[in-house]
Design a protein around this nucleic acid. Structure first.
Lengths: 236, 236
DNA sequence: TGTCACGATGTCACTAAGTGGCATTGCTGG
DNA sequence: CCAGCAATGCCACTTAGTGACATCGTGACA
């Protein structure tokens, strides 16, 4: 694999005119906009009944341009789905060494709840719907699994850094895989719950603690504790 | 989702003429045969350069028939990939309550090593190659992730049974997800190692024990121990 | 201000992935 | 030997996705 066993797929963007091209930001926004319309159409009419043409028309672009930004119809769902887990990723990325996972999640989550605006909330709803669609639409499931794949990569980097080990270390990869899998399951559960309008009993009271415990369990207890401030004492 | 939050995708077979049609066995064998040729071609020429026509010609069928058995080009890789993890699934399915995971894997693995014939070994090699191809070919990665998805389902059922909990239980799903993720990573690592012809240091001596420990860790220690013979004492 | 450069988009022709419909084959029980 | 039925083949068709080239918009610079 790319470098010693770490699976590395170019996830979506085409050969990426990104570097020297359209500002990353603008490109990203456009992709997101297309993804919004695509997701809406997928949800309303199903994937099969939503053609590339229709997506393009909905967003006011030529079909060709849509294909310039997405390699396939399904992948149009990816940005919305990815964004749906982005804040969780941000949380993990900003997890300082001197906090336990529970504490960090708790502080971040409250901050986020305040910050979320209407557009973000609508996007989150779309993301949830896509995850749910993934149930019966294999094409969308692919997008969801790809997003989870991304999460796993991030998680690998974070865990590697936290333990002071290389990202190729097998234990690191195992923990990252297990932790992100736990994350995925909780997300699926939360998603369906949100659509049903009910909260599953396990989450009563405190989702944060549940997530933190899930990750702690999935990593055999290795990931979750606060580490002593000086960055030289990983206890592996 | 299909029934309360458990993601359930019809993984590959078309609307399945299976029930009243071609004997399951024959259908399965044919799919496997197509998958063999497809995988070989994917490996030798890449996915993009392998058309449905070519696969059909290679296996001696009309293109139309190939599409009758597979919903997409990529999914042609699935049977081979799935079969690559099948024996592991068989192992887990046959895990009796009174053995620890280590002990069970140890006994089963030796039995399997003896039983594997030439065709099986060739298929396994193909499977490994597909997993490796998944690195750079998103289409194939999908197949691999789908296979892992299947493993997770099986794992869910097994764990549920072992713990005496419903398969929809959140803890069960979390453990299953974490365990099968660990499984996946080990498989990826073993695959690349096998192609390199070297054995990663972590596996020195005893892969079995490593796998067992990985699963034990990923489930926070819940899955792995022997349970006392009477089926009424899950210690959760 | 004009124009030059360049990247994004549009247009159109084309390849290839799948699907629907119907004819043909081949097996199986009577 | 025939009736019936599932599997396959064949052909026409739709649609996802690409390549090549024209056009447009914008920003830098004389």
């Amino acid at each position: 694999m790319s470098h010693d066993g770490v699976i590395q797929v170019q996830v979506d963007t085409l050969p990426s005119p990104g570097a020297a091209g359209m500002s990353e930001r603008r490109r990203h926004r456009l992709r997101l906009e297309i993804s919004r319309e695509a997701s809406r159409l997928f949800w309303e009419h199903g994937v099969a009944a939503t053609s590339g043409d229709r997506i393009a028309r909905a967003v006011g672009l030529s079909t060709r341009t849509v294909w310039r930004h997405f390699r396939s119809k399904e992948s149009c769902a990816e940005p919305i789905v990815t964004q749906g887990v982005e804040w969780e990723m941000r949380m993990l990325r900003s997890w300082p060494r001197h906090l336990s996972l529970e504490d960090h999640l708790a502080t971040e989550a409250t901050g986020y709840a305040r910050a979320a605006d209407a557009v973000e909330q609508a996007d989150t709803l779309l993301a949830i719907r896509m995850i749910r669609l993934a149930d019966h639409e294999p094409a969308i499931r692919t997008a969801w699994l790809m997003a989870c794949d991304q999460v796993e990569r991030e998680m690998t980097a974070i865990i590697a850094k936290r333990l002071g080990l290389p990202a190729t270390d097998l234990d690191v990869r195992l923990h990252a895989a297990a932790a992100s899998a736990a994350f995925r399951v909780v997300n699926e559960e939360l998603g369906t719950a949100a659509l049903r309008g009910t909260i599953p009993p396990e989450f009563e009271g405190d989702v944060i603690r549940y997530v933190a415990r899930a990750i702690r369990d999935a990593t055999g207890g290795t990931i979750g504790d606060a580490l002593t401030p000086p960055p030289t004492t990983p206890h592996h």
